[in-house]
Simulated assay, not measured.
Amino acid sequence: MHMDNRRLVAGLLWDAGLPAVVFYLCRALGMEALPALAAGGLAALIRVAYVAVVRRRLNGLAALVSVIFLLLLAVSLLTGDPRILLARESVLAGAAGLLLVGSCLIGKPIVYALIRRLNAADDAARVRLEERWHADPAFRRHFFVLSMVIGAGLLLDAVAPVVLVYLLPIDTMAGLSTALHVVTVVLLAVWVMWYRRRRIQMAVAEVSRAR
């Protein structure tokens, strides 16, 4: 595995796994579900602060999850329902999924917009992207497929834990919801790599046939 991929996986495990580990530790010490979930979320906040201060690198995604956690914590304290705290990753996944699918419905897949923005400083690359977008239907379809599949996967990842959290015990869902999120991200990443490799193979095959 490439070093960057290892760091990405390690960061994902830390961000997703730390709250669950702290939750189960607190439960083992006899804490109630709501304060145990709050402790897990606060542990994630401390990690975000540590990375930002000591390593001088703010993880925007983890910071956003932390903000969502604080909002859901306030709602949980007001309602007395600890299950609300288990929806923090689902809120983010659902928002991202809706954004991806919605961008396809309005005609400009957000994955294309992101690639275009990454090449904003390179005028030649940006012009090539725009020319291919307007002239090549297969090129446009590629970004539609990427955005729709990733968006659908994130929407499923958002809905499933919210449904399960009211069907299963909190102690079960604290770990299961984390596992579901990690598995979803890994499966989507594997699919994206497979899809890109398949497109490259098809492009090479077309060039070979043209010769």
Rank of each mutant, 00 (worst) to 15 (best):
M1I: 11
M1Q: 04
M1T: 12
M3L: 12
M3Q: 08
D4Y: 12
D4G: 02
N5T: 13
R7F: 13
A10V: 14
A10W: 06
L12R: 01
L12G: 07
L13Q: 03
D15S: 11
A16P: 01
A16N: 04
V21I: 15
F23I: 00
F23D: 00
C26V: 05
C26M: 15
A28K: 03
G30D: 03
G30L: 08
E32K: 00
L34H: 04
P35D: 01
L42Q: 02
A43K: 01
L45V: 08
R47F: 14
A49L: 14
A52M: 06
V53M: 09
V54H: 04
R55G: 05
R57T: 10
L58Q: 02
N59R: 07
G60D: 05
L61C: 03
V65D: 03
I68K: 02
F69K: 03
L70G: 06
V75K: 04
V75S: 08
V75D: 06
S76A: 15
L78F: 13
L78G: 11
L85Y: 02
L85A: 05
L86C: 08
A87P: 01
A87S: 14
R88I: 12
R88K: 10
G94E: 06
A96G: 02
G97S: 06
L98F: 14
L98C: 12
G102T: 11
C104N: 12
L105K: 07
K108S: 11
I110F: 15
R116H: 10
N119K: 07
A120Q: 10
D123M: 03
R126S: 03
R128V: 05
R132T: 01
R132N: 10
A135F: 03
D136Q: 11
P137R: 03
F139T: 05
R140Q: 11
R141W: 15
R141F: 15
M148D: 07
G151V: 13
A152V: 14
G153W: 11
L155A: 06
V159E: 00
V165E: 07
Y166H: 14
L168I: 08
I170Y: 01
I170M: 05
A174W: 01
A174C: 02
A174E: 01
T178V: 15
L180F: 11
L180E: 01
H181T: 14
V183I: 15
V185E: 04
V186Y: 08
L187W: 10
L187Q: 03
A189D: 07
A189L: 13
V190L: 14
W194N: 07
Y195A: 04
R196W: 08
R198Q: 12
R199V: 09
R199E: 13
I200V: 10
I200N: 03
Q201F: 13
M202F: 10
R209M: 12
R211I: 12
